[in-house]
Nucleic acid binder design. Structure first.
Lengths: 377, 377
DNA sequence: GTGAAAGCGCTAACAG
DNA sequence: CTGTTAGCGCTTTCAC
């Protein structure tokens, strides 16, 4: 019979290099390849006996379905791209280390839970980088801090691949959805906290780049100052330069109109400010209140412990992935979705003039910022 | 003609959803699909004119070759798995945060430079996790800190997929190659440094887990003590628990045989020790010398700045990728390769009793540890 | 219930 | 130098 001949041909001719194919399993189990496919994928309505038999044979042969073939056939790879926009030479920086690490960890975890894996891809600064992007079959992509006219995002969307961004896209980037913190509310809330703690002139350590985070936070600061009749006192520096932060912190405290409280937008600003304060003989929090935006746990045990604003990157990563996979699996025609996530102010000794004690601060006090819509979980 | 009919059939019947296929390009350019393939991949010896023409048509049509099809056909996906063994609930922790982040950054960068992308995959603790692994076509895999009998590694090797590990594999794990630091040399060198700085009794903050890093470092410490006639003074704690480190640091300094110098194996130990020292009124470095293994830059601006041992994760990541891609592209029959990489002791104020100054330590002094073979770059 | 056959989009032999 | 053809290994109608 033709069938038999076919099987023989395949078995004899397997150049698969030792790895068993679906045909080998079918032959060994004495069924057709359709049955094998159905049995292994839980499709069709086969008798349980057949299903078990096929599975045991497949196991015995050490059969692994070919991901490439499955992808080609079904059009889904189970792969999600992850990229972060950079402002430098490297294909991607991990400025805000802890933020990225935690965001990526949560995203990876959430993706895996739904059967997807993340592929780390470069921000397409170089033309060469495009090659890698089109060499991998992506079901969707996560972009962290997309730049206003990201060519990769544009291209992906054109191809009909869903893109969800961490950080609201500037310009008219056509992302499928985005997730972001309510940066204005967070900064406003934080400045109120400092004012309550007795700050009269609050300074800001900000960045020179034009990304949304920096822009929104700075604007919120300026508005707050305006509303409270305070002259803005700030220093801006290139956030990707590790040394520039220390210099900027120093400059801020060297000013004639030296602030009595400072908020630093970037992770290392806390230690930078502490070091600068020591150089000027300023005691924290007695002479200077300090707060910075950070996900790092080192600020729990600095001297003194420093109050931090957490953007809750884990929650963001999880949400981004949920939105993305929903878009991948659902009908992609839905309206543009976005979700604004709450932040968390972790109050420690550096921003409290009263009740300062040499003991450890009991445990992180959490002040929920006044967050508007927010969402599930 | 058959050809013409074929083309018409395809054009009419493209269910590709708007995306152009290689046939569309061929039709539009008036050549065969082979010519298109060759023109785009720089194969064959076509006239430059044809090549350019085909390329321009492809561009105009927005043609993107299907990665899935290419992978199926060629057997190479351009994808490399990245996984880190964990000791907890999460599919992967980023203990030693900065270490992992930097290692991954360098590895990603090195891979991209050679046209590969990294896929983040879970340590296979759960059975469910196996699914994801076999759902992605991998050309090779990087494993960080492989556990002694990692089932995923075993399975991959069985399938003939190259695996390179960061950290020498314990047991008889059959990895293709590995890269590691010379931990014994690093620790020995570091202890010598402390002794030279005047330490009489050096304590160790170590971990309870049995991974190679912890084991080798601890052993080196014990041997050093033996050689120098010092009683070992150490506390071990579960390294993945963020609070346990602070407690262990405290316990170490509370001992009756309190050490006058401490080396902490894990990243947060520096701040933990500093905090504990403050609680006991110990001045660093006057009463206590402190060193920890860390990649974090915060230790440059703590008070005082802390001497750290850097494992140079960037170099390790790069090397791991080079070895892996060489194995993927070369004939895989080569002998098991391994490479031992140097570490770097960054000496700061916390380990120097003389010359202590309120100024910043000029700049990181680098002491090359006595490293044996080492290698290229 | 089970099997045969038709491709997914591409690359690599091999003809012309 | 260019075109035709045969699959890569799988899923999926559609007959039986």
């Amino acid at each position: 019979m033709t069938a038999a001949k076919h099987q023989v041909t395949r078995s004899a001719g397997r150049r698969t290099g030792g790895r068993a194919g679906i045909r080998d399993v079918a032959a060994a189990a004495g069924v057709s390849i359709t049955t094998v496919s159905d049995a292994l994928n839980g499709k069709g309505r086969l008798p349980d006996a057949t299903r078990r038999h096929v599975r045991s044979v497949a196991d015995r042969l050490g059969y692994r379905p070919s991901a490439a073939a499955r992808t080609l056939r079904t059009g889904k790879s189970g792969l999600i791209g992850l990229t972060v926009t950079t402002y430098g030479e490297e294909p991607f920086t991990f400025t805000e280390f802890a933020y990225f690490a935690e965001m990526a960890r949560a995203a990876t975890s959430a993706a895996l839970a739904r059967g997807y894996a993340l592929v780390i891809l470069p921000a397409a600064s170089q033309h060469r980088d495009f090659d890698v992007w089109s060499n991998v079959a992506l079901d969707g992509t996560v972009v962290i801090d997309p730049s206003d006219h990201d060519p990769v995002v544009t291209e992906l969307v054109r191809q009909g691949i869903p893109v969800v961004s961490d950080g609201r896209p500037g310009g008219s980037l056509p992302v499928t959805a985005w997730v972001d913190n309510d940066h204005e509310a967070a900064v406003t809330n934080l400045l109120d906290h400092l004012a309550t703690a007795g700050a009269r002139r609050i300074g800001l350590l900000t960045g020179t780049s034009t990304d949304t985070y920096t822009r929104l936070s700075t604007t919120a600061y300026l508005h707050w100052c305006e509303r409270h009749g305070q002259d803005p006192v700030y220093e801006a520096y290139p956030a990707h330069d590790p040394c520039a932060g220390a210099v900027a912190a120093d400059r801020l405290l060297a000013r004639p109109d030296r602030p009595d409280a400072v908020y630093g937008l970037f992770d290392p600003n806390g230690t930078d400010l502490l070091a600068a304060a020591r150089r000027y003989g300023l005691r924290v929090p007695d002479d200077l209140l300090v707060v910075c935006c950070s996900e790092s746990s080192v600020y729990a045990s600095t001297e003194p412990p420093i109050t931090t604003l957490s953007l809750k990157p884990g929650r963001i990563g999880t949400t981004v992935i949920q939105l993305l996979i929903d878009a991948i699996e659902g009908q992609s025609g839905r309206a543009e979705a976005h979700q604004v996530m709450p932040t968390e102010l972790i109050v420690r000794a550096s921003s409290q003039r009263i009740g300062r004690s040499p003991r450890r601060v009991p445990s992180a006090t959490v002040v929920a910022p006044r967050t508007p819509p927010a969402a599930d979980q």
